[in-house]
């Protein structure tokens, strides 16, 4: 079939080069022996060991992990419940739109709105406020993916369970939940990566004492190119890519967007 592609091969493979060339160069340069950012002098992994000796990076990584894990848990619970509610109990396109809006709402507007809310509540800013904020838009992604899965599976499955004498709660745990498990796993993994890599909202809603890893990266990249950033970037890119690839195995993520 693919011999029908013809000239379309050019944009197709061109876009892949476009997407992966900058990342590849960055990964390549992270193994540079010299600290001259643009001149290749030889292979070395020393910049990776520098990462593990940097207290700022380790602290940022720890904070990010705390935020991402708790955000993921909240997102999974709220997002899954909401998706089931929207799919089975209240079919309403406007409620559905509201549930998915946090995913596409301009992050800067979300960030300052949340900052305004927290300030007026006299809430001290810290990892907890980042978690609250991240859970908002991560939840929308879980909702979208689980909702997509629920649309594919027949609601008569649940009706059959109830007809065969199962209770509503029993049906939920024995029929509904197992059938949407791959979507919940995929949604949770994506929520985790999103939170892991999110910068704008964390930047506004975080306190000064506990920066997350993207905030640490931001303060580093503002001052230009260094092999240390290249190594850190490589690690972060590979973690995200790995998680998203696992998520893709559970659900075709691209279908849900």
């Amino acid at each position: 079939m693919h011999n029908k592609l013809g000239w379309l091969r050019l944009p197709l493979y061109g876009v892949l080069v476009f997407l992966y060339l900058p990342i590849s160069v960055l990964i390549f340069m992270s193994f540079n022996a010299s600290d001259a950012p643009f001149t290749w002098t030889g292979f070395s992994t020393k910049w990776y060991s520098v990462l593990f000796d940097s207290p700022d990076i380790l602290e940022g990584f720890k904070n990010t992990l705390i935020v991402a894990v708790i955000t993921t848990i909240i997102s999974i619970v709220l997002g899954t419940l909401l998706a089931i509610g929207l799919a089975r109990y209240q079919k309403s396109s406007s409620l559905e739109a509201i549930a998915l809006t946090p995913a596409i709402f301009p992050d800067l507007a979300l960030a300052i709105g949340l900052l305004a809310l927290f300030t007026s509540l006299h809430l001290t800013l810290g990892l907890h406020s980042v978690i609250i904020s991240h859970a908002l838009f991560c939840m929308a992604f879980v909702t979208a993916i689980v909702r997509g899965r629920l649309a594919q599976i027949d609601s008569s499955l649940e009706e059959a369970a109830q007809d065969l004498g199962d209770t509503a709660i029993g049906t939920f745990f024995r029929v509904t939940l197992p059938s949407i498990k791959p979507a919940i796993i995929a949604g949770g993994l994506l929520a985790f990566t999103l939170s892991l890599d999110e910068f704008v909202i964390a930047f506004f809603t975080n306190g000064p004492s506990s920066p997350t890893l993207p905030i640490v990266i931001y303060s580093m990249v503002r001052f230009g190119v260094s092999p240390e950033i290249n190594a850190l970037a490589t690690v972060v890119l590979l973690i995200s890519a790995l998680i998203v690839t696992i998520a893709q195995r559970n659900v075709k993520v691209q279908d849900q967007l």
């Binding site: 876009v15 892949l16 997407l19 992966y20 060339l21 900058p22 990342i23 160069v25 960055l26 340069m29 950012p37 643009f38 994506l190 990566t193 999103l194 892991l196 890599d197 910068f199 993207p214 990266i217 931001y218 990249v221 230009g224 190119v225 950033i229 290249n230 970037a233 972060v236 890119l237 995200s240 890519a241 998203v244 690839t245 893709q248 075709k252 993520v253 691209q254 967007l257």
Partner: peptide, 24 residues
């Protein structure tokens, strides 16, 4: 499709920074 979305899910700052490495 996976190859095309994969970069999108990775760190935005780093993907932007990669262009500095390339275009400096």
């Amino acid at each position: 499709l996976v190859l095309i979305v994969l970069p999108f899910w990775t760190n935005f700052l780093i993907r932007t920074y990669a262009w500095i490495v390339l275009l400096n």
